[in-house]
């Protein structure tokens, strides 16, 4: 009886866990994936790449910041409203969580930069390596 209850309970818990697990998986895409339309619309995903030098702008001196990310093959424009992490810099690799809007602009909910200036997020490093283009300006 007791064992039965426990098994049912554990089963239910596992079921719920797996369900919310599936709902909350976030996939990583490179900028090339996004430009080629491989990334989903209206679903949260993670986008990584290098912030293009000179691309960071703040229209109207407001909280909204716009910049371009690249994997040295294709670029994606990112918009983020809020305070950027300390180590967000042009020329550095970052990862952003967010969704694509209808215009193909990535609306970020969160921007992550690692606390080490030489650091490159592993996903970004991987997606940069996959591009045959030489890493210009590095």
């Amino acid at each position: 009886m007791l064992i039965g209850l426990m098994v049912i309970g554990a089963g239910l818990a596992t079921g719920f866990a797996l369900k919310s697990f599936n709902e909350n998986l976030m996939y990583f895409f490179s900028t090339t994936d996004v430009v080629e339309g491989k990334a989903p619309k209206d679903t949260l995903f993670r986008l990584g790449g290098m912030v293009i030098k000179g691309s960071v702008e703040r229209p109207n001196d407001g909280l909204m910041v716009r910049f371009k990310l690249t994997d040295f093959s294709k670029d994606v424009t990112v918009e983020y409203t809020g305070i950027l992490p300390d180590l967000f810099r042009e020329g550095q690799g970052i990862v952003a969580h967010g969704k694509l809007n209808a215009q193909g602009v990535f609306i970020a909910e969160e921007v992550l930069a690692k606390h080490d200036e030489n650091y490159m997020p592993p996903e970004v490093k991987g997606s940069l390596k996959n591009q045959s283009a030489p890493v210009a300006g590095q």
Binding site: F21, M26, Y27, L44
Partner: peptide, 17 residues
């Protein structure tokens, strides 16, 4: 592939337990 599991998953599991 590269995936990550965000805080919503952990919250969804943690609180009901």
């Amino acid at each position: 592939g590269k995936i990550s599991v965000g805080p919503p998953y952990f919250n969804a599991v943690f609180i009901p337990l």
